[in-house]
Design a protein around this nucleic acid. Structure first.
Lengths: 156, 156
DNA sequence: TAAACTAAAGTCAAAGAAAGTCAAAACGGA
DNA sequence: TCCGTTTTGACTTTCTTTGACTTTAGTTTA
């Protein structure tokens, strides 16, 4: 029931919190062993929960003494908005879109209430169109809202 | 003979009553199993009895650890919101939708920034779908945003 | 020093676990 | 009987978990 991926995600985020330098190194096999899961599960967590659009950078090394390093990137607002708009592209799924909106909130670029509004606007149920265009519309909505809110970016 | 849909509806409403925060999470298959009906019956109940117009928000996730979450606004305490939802209806043009959003702002129910986000979300350019469904989607988005904002969880 | 070994991490696809969709069949009231 | 509502089930989509196989890098050995 409780997703192991979520538990691992939380664990890593706690590690990041503790490490004040906003980056942390793990051993894939060790972690997999600790959580009693397949090592590739760690990769799954990293790609789905610690992707670039969520504000993380992964760097790693194989072989003896290998490691995986998770870095929380810290960029200024303008760059960040630009990065996010790029990540949205012309089509975006609900998961990814929600992730992006959450990042905006975590970085305190939007408030809790604004976050709630945005998430509602891109929910799968509200955009009840044929599947094939759903993600396109969602991309437009996400970008539209972000641009409207931060349209001073780029100016001055 | 009592319709199973009505029984399920009641059951969910009881769950919502018990839940302090006016929101509840269910497992579709589990519930279907409990009531001995087809899983898709649950979807039927949700779409016919827990629609946006009735003041409910549904959010869900597939795959392992999936769930369906039903959120309710307190219609009694917020009759004015219900009135606004009714005004939106099943389909709404950009002009009228913008008007409603402006009313929310004038009554200081939403901030200037929230107003900007909402207007962006329902603009004609962001909702780039075939004309015939554009106003339907817009109605959903407006209602979804309003319900999300005015349910009990949404208020910090 | 090159080859062999060991110790990591990466990839990818299949299997599993949910929920969603849609239309046909069944039901029930006017 | 007819028509709108409900029920059912086959099929689809999305997300997660697992495991076999690959790649890379350091270490040992002939």
């Amino acid at each position: 029931m409780a997703r192991i991926s979520d538990i691992i995600e939380l664990f890593i985020k706690e590690l990041l919190d503790e490490a004040h330098n906003q980056s942390v190194e793990i051993q894939r096999n060790e972690l997999a062993n600790y959580f009693n899961c397949a090592p590739s599960q760690i990769n799954y967590v990293l790609t789905t929960r610690f992707s670039l659009d969520k504000g993380y950078l992964i760097e790693s090394r194989r072989g003896g003494g290998g490691y995986i390093k998770i870095v929380q990137i810290n960029i200024d607002r303008q760059q960040h908005i630009k990065l996010i708009l790029d990540q949205v592209g012309n089509s975006i799924g609900k998961m990814k879109a929600t992730g992006i909106i959450n990042v905006l909130k975590n970085r305190e670029l939007i408030t809790e209430r604004e976050c709630i509004i945005m998430r509602a606007a891109i929910s799968d149920r509200t955009i009840n169109t044929p599947v094939n265009i759903k993600d396109d519309i969602r991309a437009n909505i996400v970008k539209g809202m972000i641009i409207a809110l931060f349209n001073d970016c780029g100016r001055e």
